[in-house]
Amino acid sequence: MALTPRWMRRLLCRRRSGVSLVRRTSRPTPGQRDATQALYRATCARDEAQRQTREVEATAARLRAVREANHFAELFRSSMEGYR
């Protein structure tokens, strides 16, 4: 029974658990899928925040206009009635 050297056994018997030199491009790993999903969720959250910011700014502008109109109405009313 002759013992074969280790390097020869490695050449003759390929192990499946070893590191492959061929790059796999068929399917993403679970970590890559998780990262892609996290990026998608973050992008959606950013878009939603920007949309809400625009809505809030529009509402604030409307409230400012109403407050300003009310202020001018109060000034007009007080000028017509006299300064109590």
Rank of each mutant, 00 (worst) to 15 (best):
A45T: 13
L12V: 10
P28G: 03
T59A: 15
Y83V: 14
Q37E: 04
S26W: 01
R16A: 12
A61S: 09
R41S: 10
R51H: 14
S79K: 05
R54Q: 13
E57I: 05
A38R: 02
A49P: 06
Q37R: 05
R77A: 01
G31L: 04
Q50T: 12
A69Y: 07
E74G: 03
R9A: 15
A69S: 11
S20W: 01
R46A: 15
R15K: 13
E57T: 08
M8S: 10
H71A: 07
T53F: 09
R84H: 12
T43F: 08
R77F: 00
R51M: 12
Y83M: 12
Y40A: 15
L12N: 07
A58G: 08
R46W: 10
A69K: 06
S78V: 06
R24C: 04
E48H: 10
Q32G: 12
R27C: 01
Q37T: 03
L12I: 15
T43N: 11
E68G: 00
A58T: 15
R16W: 02
A49F: 07
P28Q: 03
Q37I: 03
L75P: 01
A42Q: 08
E48A: 15
G31P: 07
V56L: 14
T53S: 11
P28R: 07
D47G: 11
Q50W: 08
A45G: 09
R6V: 06
S78N: 09
P30M: 02
T36E: 06
Q52G: 02
R41P: 05
A58P: 07
F72I: 03
A58V: 12
C13F: 14
A49I: 09
N70F: 00
E81M: 11
P28A: 08
R33G: 05
V19R: 09
E57G: 06
S20K: 02
R27K: 02
M8E: 13
S17C: 03
M80G: 08
R84A: 15
R14L: 07
R54H: 10
L75I: 03
R67V: 04
L21P: 03
R54G: 11
Y83K: 11
V22Y: 00
C44W: 07
G18Q: 09
A69F: 06
R46L: 09
G82W: 01
E48M: 12
C13V: 15
W7Q: 13
V22N: 00
Q52D: 04
S78A: 08
H71S: 04
E57C: 09
L75D: 00
T43I: 08
S17I: 05
A49E: 07
L11F: 05
M80V: 15
T25S: 03
E68D: 00
R33N: 10
E57F: 02
V22T: 01
Q37D: 11
